[in-house]
C-alpha cells in the first residue's frame, strides 16, 4: 500500500500521537467519564489506521504487524478472562469485584472496572486494527 503526499505525512506525524494519548485517556478514565474500553480501543485503532493510511506499508512488514496485532488481541482476551477467573478463585464468583473500592470519584476506584477497561481496550483496539490490515491494506490477495 502506497503512502500519501508530504503534507498528509507531516500533519499525521503531529496528530497521531495526540490521538493515541486521547484513546489511552478515554480507557483509563472509563469508570469516571463517558468512554471506557470500547470507545478508547476504537480510538487507538483509528490512530493506527491513520498512520497506515498516511505512510503506507510494505507487504512483508505488514504481515508482521498483523501477527503482532493479533497477538495483542489474544492478550487482551486472556487478560479479561483472567480477571474473571481471579474473582472465581479469590471470592468464589465469576467476575467478582474482589479489589478494594478506593475513594469514590478518584482515578483509583471501582475495583476491577479499570482493569477490565484496559483489557477490553487492548482487545478492541488490536482486533479492529487486525481487521483493517487484513481487509484494506493487503494488496497481494487480489492478484491471485
Amino acid at each position: 500500500m502506497r503512502g500519501m503526499s508530504l503534507v498528509v505525512k507531516v500533519v499525521t506525524n503531529i496528530v497521531v500521537g495526540f490521538i493515541f494519548i486521547y484513546g489511552v485517556y478515554i480507557i483509563l478514565h472509563g469508570h469516571l467519564t463517558p468512554g471506557g474500553g470500547f470507545a478508547g480501543g476504537v480510538i487507538i485503532a483509528g490512530a493506527l489506521v491513520l498512520r497506515i493510511l498516511a505512510f503506507g506499508v510494505e507487504p512483508v512488514s505488514e504481515k508482521r504487524a498483523e501477527e503482532r496485532a493479533s497477538a495483542f488481541e489474544s492478550l487482551g482476551a486472556l487478560l479479561f478472562i483472567g480477571i474473571a477467573f481471579a474473582g472465581l478463585i479469590i471470592g468464589g464468583a465469576f467476575f467478582l469485584n474482589f479489589l478494594p473500592q478506593g475513594t469514590p470519584l478518584r482515578l483509583l476506584s471501582g475495583g476491577i472496572i479499570p482493569l477490565c477497561n484496559i483489557a477490553i481496550g487492548i482487545k478492541v483496539g488490536a482486533g479492529l486494527f487486525t481487521i483493517f490490515l487484513a481487509l484494506a491494506a493487503i494488496k497481494y490477495v487480489m492478484e491471485d
Partner: peptide, 12 residues
Amino acid sequence: CGGANIVADVIL
C-alpha cells in the same frame, strides 16, 4: 462497584 459512570458499572 465504585465506578462513577453507571454505564461502565453495568457493562463491567
